[in-house]
């Protein structure tokens, strides 16, 4: 399979008057089409910097990043604009890029994700899970090949989180998007991803890579993944690799 994302010796630092903060050091990895890759690491280790690099919001100091396809970015907060209806929020991307919107396509998407009757509602009238789905639709409308998820579930309460994880996993699988999920939640990483990258403390580099194979009888969903006997083993392996106590 072809590589959709390739990092070669990427370094990134941030500068302030107090000095240089070396965030990423010699990052090397590739991600293939259709993979779901989770990135975990100690807090402040540059996980978000990695996503910002992939989305092109910032440029690397050294090394090269190859990305063959369109990128869509989904954030920790839904960042819905309160003064716009659900419909106007979803069409924000095409509006900015001055692309004509296919209204039928949007209606089918809304229908599919249970938001049809809320098309002309304002965000404050929606529940947390619905808001997050609207945020995902806003990203999906531009039909990106690569999805970047920056802790997208961390602001949701526990029950909502579990259901939204399943929802979004389903959407990703159906649309066969290559996905990078940044998270601090190890269980979420194992439940969603085929591969987990563990980063070291700053300056970050890749410490360990785990291919997740849960040997489930049914088709995988994040919820079912938690029942797998191997779930706990992966948890312990990743926990050890994170080396929190160091």
């Amino acid at each position: 399979m072809e590589n959709e994302i390739e990092f070669k010796n990427v370094c990134k630092s941030f500068y302030s008057l107090k000095g240089e903060t070396h965030v990423l050091q010699n990052m090397n990895f590739t991600i293939k089409k259709g993979e779901i890759v989770a990135i975990v690491g100690p807090s402040g280790c540059g996980k978000s910097t990695l996503l910002n690099l992939i989305s092109g919001l910032i440029k690397p100091d050294q090394g090269t990043i190859q990305i063959s396809k369109k990128v869509g970015y989904m954030f920790q907060k839904d960042n819905l604009l309160e003064w716009r209806t659900v419909y106007k929020n979803i069409t924000l991307g095409p509006e900015i890029k001055k692309i004509k919107v296919d209204n039928k396509h949007i209606d089918t998407l809304l229908e599919k994700y249970g938001l049809s009757e809320f098309k002309f509602h304002y965000p404050k009238e929606l529940s947390g899970g619905m808001r997050q789905r609207v945020a995902l639709l806003r990203t999906l409308v531009l039909d990106p090949d690569i999805l970047l998820l920056d802790e997208p579930f961390s602001s949701l309460d526990y029950q909502t989180k579990i259901t939204v994880q399943d929802d979004i996993y389903k959407i990703i699988k159906e649309t066969q998007k290559t996905t990078i999920l940044v998270t601090h939640d190890i269980t979420e990483a194992i439940a969603m991803a085929n591969r987990v990258l563990v980063l070291t403390k700053r300056p970050s580099t890749i410490k360990a890579v785990f291919d997740i194979q849960l040997d489930l009888k049914e088709e995988k969903t994040p919820f079912l993944a938690r029942n797998s006997a191997k779930f706990k083993d992966y948890f312990n392996l990743i926990w050890e690799a994170l080396d929190i106590h160091e």
């Binding site: 989305s55 919001l57 970015y73 954030f75 920790q76 907060k77 960042n79 604009l81 924000l92 991307g93 900015i96 890029k97 531009l142």
Partner: peptide
């Protein structure tokens, strides 16, 4: 965060 969202577009 909203600023970043718009910049990502």
């Amino acid at each position: 965060d909203k600023l970043k969202m718009l910049k990502s577009f």
